[in-house]
Design a protein around this nucleic acid. Structure first.
Length: 446
DNA sequence: GTCAACGTACCG
DNA sequence: CGGTACGTTGAC
């Protein structure tokens, strides 16, 4: 690579937060889309923040360089001197000329010639994909689906390799979502009962600058996630429940997409265990029903027995039960959605080589390398594969426990499951077998 | 079990 | 209404 910068900290990268592959924000590594003015420059960084040069093909790396390998990303270089066409540097920098598939769909070699493997190769691929977008100044605009995945008609995508540049916006959106989620998580773990409103306000103030894109990305990510899907279903159930509810001013109870609802009395207790619901995604206003009123399963969201008896008359429970059974059977047919978290989901490029890509016109299948791991699994193993009766049986089990929980917050979970000392949410999660690590919980209760 | 093809839900 | 992709089915 002929275009080298002096060693040391790159001024352009100081004091900025960059979007790294996978939507991770980082102050050091990445690329600043708003500032890119020059050419792509590949550099590697030591953990101490110094940029170093790496030997070319086949050269053994020093210890420091080995450390730096994991920190290698591209960034936009501000210099503007042209790079001689045909030179090694030009070859290295002209990443848009790569053919988009090798072996298992991973890039096996870095642009500087170093061997890479597995996720590292994939991450670098993503990084370059995002960076090169503007290098290739083509005005082609491609559509994205809700997950930020480039979606072009088959003919188009086969004609030209994906303009690797077109993922930056997605990346920033993902970073925004990650940021929002981080904020939410921080709030959920830090905010004790009683000072919730202050924190919500603070959070709200802090998020005032959130753009519409940020919010829609957040909402979209929530609704795309398994739990988010449940959230949407919960909203619908709430809407129905509020219609049955003899509330004097029902217009004040809104459970729409943004869940900007006016606070209502809390029938079961505090909702501070459920910040997502209580603060309406940082918008203000409280979720008008206690989350414990809902039982969420892969087959759908149900109102708990106690909830039904509270928000409706006992005579209406029967009707609601049959509605729930209908919903369960309807949801059995419903398409599952990509989890958006697994590596295949995070992959944004069709390999264009697998059978699904080649045969997309008739096969109607997503690229094999982008097929969600969750969708690959059979919906079996849990409530999803069972019939409505089983679902309802599980539902009643949860209901009875939730009712007892609402009567006394210290009722232990049903036998067979050891207690978990993390408040109501912990109990609920434990009772429902939620690990919380993958977001692919088999069933969940709010 | 894998693959191709088709039906169709879902979305813009 | 067209595009994408999940679910299902039948062939191998």
């Amino acid at each position: 690579m002929s275009a080298r910068l002096p060693l040391g900290k790159e001024p352009e990268t100081e004091g900025k937060i960059f979007c790294r592959p996978g939507g991770v924000a980082s102050p050091r590594f990445g690329w600043p889309p708003s500032k890119r003015t020059g050419r792509l420059q590949e550099v590697e960084w030591t953990k101490s923040g110094h940029r170093i040069q790496l030997p070319r093909n086949g050269t053994e790396r020093s210890g420091e360089q080995k450390d730096a390998r994991v920190c290698k990303y591209l960034y936009y270089k501000t210099h503007t001197e042209p790079i001689p066409t045909g030179s090694g540097a030009a070859r290295d920098l002209d990443l848009t000329q790569r053919k988009p598939f090798r072996g298992l769909g991973l890039w096996a070699m870095s642009a500087s010639g170093g061997l890479m493997e597995g996720n590292q190769a994939r991450e670098d691929e993503d990084a370059r994909d995002s960076c090169c977008a503007d290098e290739d100044s083509s005005p082609v605009v491609e559509r994205r689906n809700r997950s930020g995945i480039i979606s072009t008609p088959l003919s188009k995508s086969l004609k030209h390799s994906r303009a690797l540049s077109q993922y930056i916006a997605t990346c920033s959106a993902a970073a925004a979502v990650a940021n929002a989620n981080a904020t939410r998580l921080a709030q959920s773990s830090l905010v004790p009962t009683g000072i919730k409103s202050h924190s919500v306000d603070a959070q709200h103030r802090g998020q005032v600058g959130l753009t519409k894109l940020d919010r829609s990305a957040l909402v979209s990510s929530l609704l795309d996630s398994p739990s988010g899907l449940h959230l949407a279903q919960a909203a619908e159930l709430l809407r129905r429940a509020s219609m049955l509810l003899p509330v004097s001013d029902s217009s004040n109870i809104g459970v729409g997409g943004d869940m900007e609802a006016v606070s209502a009395s809390d029938s079961l207790g505090s909702v501070t265990d459920f910040p997502l619901l209580s603060n309406g995604g940082g918008v203000g206003g409280a979720f008008p029903f206690h989350p414990g009123l809902f039982i969420m399963t892969p087959a759908g969201v149900f109102l708990a027995d106690g909830a039904l008896s509270q928000v409706t008359g006992a005579s209406e429970q029967q009707q609601a039960h049959s509605e729930m059974a209908a919903a369960a059977s309807a949801n059995a047919k419903k398409k599952r959605k990509r989890c958006g978290l697994c590596p295949p989901c995070r992959r944004r490029i069709n390999c264009e080589q697998c059978s699904s890509c080649r045969n997309r016109k008739t096969g109607h299948q997503i690229c094999k390398f982008r097929k969600c791991e969750e969708l690959k699994k059979k919906p079996a193993g849990g409530l999803e594969s069972c019939d409505g009766e089983e679902i309802m049986s599980e539902h009643w089990k949860c209901c009875s426990w939730l009712e007892s929980l609402s009567a006394s917050p210290h009722v232990p979970p049903p036998p067979g499951r050891p207690p978990q000392p993390q408040g109501m949410l912990g109990k609920i999660h434990h009772y429902c077998g939620i690990s919380g690590s993958t977001g692919s919980e088999s069933n969940s209760v709010f």
